[in-house]
């Protein structure tokens, strides 16, 4: 446990009428620094929030933006929902895999990128679209993967 987490926990708890509600903001804040949530981190968060490990693990596994394995510096989610699929998300994913030399679900050897698929991200107007870290980016034509990778995306 990092020393500052104690304070983050009390700050998060103070923001909500029910302390339990602070769980996800705290998880996000910790993940932002740590990059992912290890078993130890989950245990620490459970202790900080006074809930069971089981509870924290259920929450972490439910949401696709919490990572239970180490990820690269940038996490690319490719939307594979219906609109994006019709607009060519398959090909986009394929091109990204070829360009990064990894398969979906993997992280590049240099730790720069992690490539994941996402169920519908509710931005069909941007189809085919991706989410880089926490930002929506699209539409991206399948052949424009280099543009995507070079794009400056505010975190």
């Amino acid at each position: 446990m990092k020393p500052e987490w104690q304070e983050w926990a009390s700050q998060a708890k103070a923001e909500f009428p029910q302390a339990n509600s602070a769980l996800m903001p705290l998880m996000h804040r910790i993940q932002l620094v740590e990059g992912w949530l290890s078993d130890e981190t989950i245990q620490d968060i459970a202790d900080l929030m006074g809930v069971t490990v089981q509870y924290v693990e259920s929450v972490a596994s439910f949401y696709s933006l919490f990572h239970r394995e180490p990820v690269g510096k940038r996490v690319i989610h490719v939307c594979v929902g219906l609109s994006c699929a019709l607009a060519g998300s398959d090909e986009l994913m394929h091109n990204l895999e070829k360009r990064l030399h990894i398969k979906e679900g993997q992280t590049t050897a240099d730790g720069a990128y992690t490539l994941l698929e996402a169920e519908c991200l509710a931005a069909c107007d941007k189809a085919p679209m991706t989410q880089i870290d926490l930002r929506f980016v699209g539409p991206i034509r399948p052949e424009d993967v280099d543009t995507l990778l070079n794009k400056e995306v505010p975190s």
Partner: peptide
């Protein structure tokens, strides 16, 4: 003793043990 949990979401949800 919360040693079992539901992991994942939707059709992917499974019952498993903590860690």
């Amino acid at each position: 003793e919360g040693q079992l949990l539901l992991e994942g979401r939707g059709v992917e949800t499974v019952v498993t043990t903590v860690d």
